[in-house]
Lab assay of single mutants.
Amino acid sequence: TFELKGKVGKVVKIAEDHYLVEVEGDKWIAYSDEKLSLGDRVMVVDVDGLKLKAKRIP
């Protein structure tokens, strides 16, 4: 999973306390310091076990 750092994905679902992000065809649980919206493009900035930390990108 460490190779996911720096990869770009898309928010495909918003849950109460996390997001579901699709990166290279796989879906991952993600969290972010900022509020994300459905369809936002994100970059993986860190990997915490099986969770990704994501940041919105333009």
Results as ranks from 00 to 15, higher is better:
residue 13 K to H: 10
residue 27 K to H: 07
residue 4 L to N: 06
residue 31 Y to N: 14
residue 49 G to E: 13
residue 22 E to I: 14
residue 30 A to G: 14
residue 3 E to P: 15
residue 43 M to Q: 10
residue 14 I to P: 02
residue 56 R to W: 12
residue 12 V to A: 06
residue 11 V to H: 00
residue 5 K to S: 14
residue 1 T to K: 15
residue 22 E to L: 11
residue 55 K to L: 04
residue 50 L to A: 12
residue 37 S to N: 12
residue 39 G to I: 05
residue 56 R to C: 05
residue 20 L to Q: 08
residue 8 V to E: 14
residue 49 G to F: 06
residue 4 L to Q: 14
residue 32 S to N: 05
residue 27 K to W: 11
residue 44 V to E: 00
residue 35 K to C: 12
residue 28 W to N: 02
residue 28 W to E: 02
residue 24 E to I: 06
residue 33 D to C: 09
residue 32 S to C: 14
residue 45 V to F: 02
residue 51 K to M: 07
residue 30 A to I: 04
residue 57 I to D: 11
residue 42 V to F: 14
residue 23 V to S: 02
residue 47 V to F: 14
residue 23 V to M: 05
residue 22 E to M: 10
residue 14 I to S: 09
residue 12 V to W: 06
residue 1 T to Q: 15
residue 10 K to A: 13
residue 46 D to H: 03
residue 34 E to C: 09
residue 33 D to L: 08
residue 5 K to M: 15
residue 2 F to T: 15
residue 7 K to R: 04
residue 50 L to W: 14
residue 56 R to L: 13
residue 7 K to M: 05
residue 36 L to I: 05
residue 43 M to K: 06
residue 52 L to V: 13
residue 24 E to V: 06
residue 21 V to F: 03
residue 57 I to S: 06
residue 15 A to E: 10
residue 31 Y to L: 14
residue 7 K to Q: 06
residue 38 L to M: 11
residue 27 K to F: 12
residue 41 R to G: 13
residue 43 M to F: 04
residue 24 E to Y: 04
residue 44 V to K: 00
residue 58 P to C: 14
residue 53 K to C: 04
residue 44 V to F: 15
residue 46 D to W: 02
residue 47 V to W: 09
residue 23 V to N: 02
residue 14 I to D: 10
residue 42 V to K: 00
residue 24 E to M: 07
residue 8 V to L: 11
residue 15 A to C: 12
residue 8 V to Q: 11
residue 7 K to E: 09
residue 48 D to I: 14
residue 17 D to F: 10
residue 42 V to D: 00
residue 25 G to I: 04
residue 45 V to A: 05
residue 9 G to M: 06
residue 58 P to E: 11
residue 42 V to A: 05
residue 5 K to H: 14
residue 14 I to V: 12
residue 21 V to M: 14
residue 11 V to W: 01
residue 37 S to W: 13
residue 36 L to P: 02
residue 5 K to A: 14
residue 5 K to D: 15
residue 41 R to Y: 13
residue 28 W to L: 02
residue 4 L to K: 10
residue 12 V to I: 10
residue 34 E to H: 08
residue 17 D to P: 11
residue 31 Y to D: 13
residue 46 D to Q: 03
residue 11 V to C: 13
residue 49 G to A: 07
residue 28 W to Q: 02
residue 31 Y to Q: 11
residue 45 V to K: 02
residue 53 K to L: 04
residue 36 L to N: 01
residue 20 L to V: 09
residue 20 L to F: 10
residue 46 D to L: 03
residue 45 V to N: 03
residue 39 G to V: 04
residue 55 K to A: 14
residue 15 A to D: 13
residue 16 E to K: 09
residue 53 K to D: 03
residue 25 G to H: 06
residue 24 E to N: 05
residue 2 F to E: 15
residue 37 S to Q: 11
residue 21 V to S: 00
residue 26 D to R: 08
residue 49 G to D: 13
residue 13 K to M: 10
residue 57 I to V: 12
residue 44 V to I: 15
residue 51 K to I: 13
residue 5 K to Y: 15
residue 52 L to W: 01
residue 8 V to T: 14
residue 26 D to M: 14
residue 29 I to M: 13
residue 33 D to G: 07
residue 43 M to L: 12
residue 55 K to T: 05
residue 3 E to H: 04
residue 9 G to A: 08
residue 37 S to T: 09
residue 12 V to N: 04
residue 18 H to P: 00
residue 34 E to V: 04
residue 29 I to C: 11
residue 32 S to D: 04
residue 40 D to W: 05
residue 47 V to Y: 08
residue 34 E to F: 04
residue 20 L to K: 07
residue 37 S to C: 13
residue 17 D to H: 09
residue 57 I to G: 03
residue 51 K to E: 07
residue 51 K to Y: 04
residue 54 A to W: 07
residue 39 G to Q: 11
residue 41 R to M: 12
residue 43 M to S: 05
residue 4 L to V: 15
residue 48 D to W: 07
residue 27 K to G: 09
residue 27 K to P: 07
residue 11 V to M: 03
residue 54 A to H: 01
residue 49 G to W: 04
residue 22 E to S: 07
residue 46 D to K: 03
residue 26 D to A: 12
residue 11 V to E: 00
residue 54 A to G: 06
residue 49 G to I: 05
residue 12 V to M: 08
residue 51 K to T: 13
residue 46 D to R: 02
residue 45 V to I: 08
residue 27 K to N: 10
residue 31 Y to I: 13
residue 11 V to P: 00
residue 2 F to I: 15
residue 4 L to S: 07
residue 26 D to S: 14
residue 1 T to P: 15
residue 9 G to H: 01
residue 38 L to Q: 08
residue 19 Y to P: 01
residue 27 K to M: 08
residue 36 L to W: 13
residue 25 G to F: 06
residue 4 L to C: 15
residue 36 L to T: 01
residue 43 M to P: 00
residue 56 R to D: 02
residue 1 T to F: 15
residue 12 V to E: 06
residue 25 G to C: 08
residue 51 K to D: 04
residue 50 L to Y: 13
residue 56 R to S: 07
residue 38 L to K: 08
residue 20 L to I: 13
residue 7 K to Y: 03
residue 28 W to H: 06
residue 8 V to R: 04
residue 37 S to M: 11
residue 22 E to F: 13
residue 52 L to C: 03
residue 55 K to W: 02
residue 48 D to M: 09
residue 13 K to I: 08
residue 16 E to A: 09
residue 2 F to H: 15
residue 13 K to P: 00
residue 2 F to R: 15
residue 2 F to L: 15
